[in-house]
Each structure stands twice: as structure tokens, then as C-alpha cells.
Amino acid sequence: MAAHAVYFEEHREWMSFLPYGNLALVQDVSSGALFSGGVLDMIGVKHTPVRPVRPGDLSDQAMKDARMAVDVDPQQLSEKQKEVLRRFTRGGGTLLTAPPGWRFPQQRSDQITLDKEDVEKIDQIWKDINSMTGRRNLGARLFNASSMLSDLRVSPSGRQLLLHLLNYSDYPVEAITVHLLGKFRKARLYQPEESSREMTVYEIEDGTGVEIDKVGVFATLVLE
């Protein structure tokens, strides 16, 4: 634990990096953002980079890099916020909204995970979300990373991408492949208690590929 705390202390600049990805999820606490096992988790399991956008923060700027968006609770939006999403779709973005009358399960005060009925309700929109995102690269795609959590971030300048990888299994994960959207010339891998090292990057159809041989518990890939 101490080694990981030191690791982040040594890279304080990463704290200023912002969530990145071409998929925006319009959601806040009242529409299930804090539910474990909710839409955000399900997208996260697929390692699809997603930027949560609170309805109160919905603006053209917030939707700037998004190509797709999911609005789980359209009734919650004001007319002004709906207009932001209309401009988003007129600009070529794909918007998935929950069906009319559909509402995200209401969270009880003692509830942190979804119960069975909630899961069934979310399943009604999950199939559409899954179908919309499919195998598209919305910032990064990870392969052989089923026992990992990932977090894609962008530097304030927009020149660097950072991919955090956390392995929660009892065993190291080997042979992970990362496909990043866009062309990157350099990649460097950081791991706690190890020297950082330059990684080989190669061209793929929609951007840049990187292969990581092994991740123990935590690793960070920095691209520019």
C-alpha cells in the first residue's frame, strides 16, 4: 500500500489529468450514478472509456470530444439541457436515451448495490447501450484485461493520454494489448517500485497499438 501511495506522490502531475473518452454518460446521483453495478460499472467492465456528465454540467463544452452519449433519465433534463443534446446529435453525435416512461431505479438510503429487480430494469437499456458501443474504439480498447479496472485520462494540454490499469486478481496479468484511438509516437509504462520503460508503439487501423507484457497490481501507460 505504501509503495502505491509513494507511486502517486511521485506523479502528482497526473492528478490534474481529466477523464477522457468519446462516450459521455449523462447521469448524476439522482439517476443512479452511485449505484454499484449500474450503467457506469457495466460500461467500465468493457473497458470502454466513459466520461460521466452531470445534467447540471451539460454544455457544448462538456460534450466537446464525445461521439456518443447515453442519457439514462431524459425527464430529469431542463429544456436548455435537452437543447445541448439536440445540438450534439445535429453535429453528428449518436445519442441513446432511455425509453419514454423508463426511470432509473430509485436508490434507498441504505442501498449501495442494485437488487434483482433493478438489474432487470437496467437490462432494458443495457442491451441498447452495449449494441451502440459494440466494438467501437471510443478512446481505448483493452484486450486480455478481464481482471482489471482501467481509467483513461487526458492532460490539461490535451497532448498526453494516461491509462491507469489496476489488476484485482490474485495473479499477475500477462500479454495485455491496448488499442488507442489516434496516432501516438511514444508510450512509457510506469509501475510501482519499478523503473519506467519505453514501450513499442505500432500502427493499427484506428490508431495506435501497445503491448504490455505483465502487470502485477498497478500500471500506468503514458502516451504522447
Binding site: 466494438r135 484486450f143 486480455n144 478481464s146 495485455i176 494489448t177 505500432y202 503491448e211
Partner: peptide, 16 residues
């Protein structure tokens, strides 16, 4: 029904 290439990558194989 996705590409075998991606299934292999998910299996930790060096497809290239």
C-alpha cells in the same frame, strides 16, 4: 460473432 483476431487478443495472443 466478433473478429477472431480480437478473441485471440483477449486470450493474450500475439496476433501480429
Amino acid at each position: 460473432a466478433g473478429p477472431l483476431e480480437e478473441y485471440m487478443l483477449d486470450s493474450g495472443w500475439n496476433v501480429r
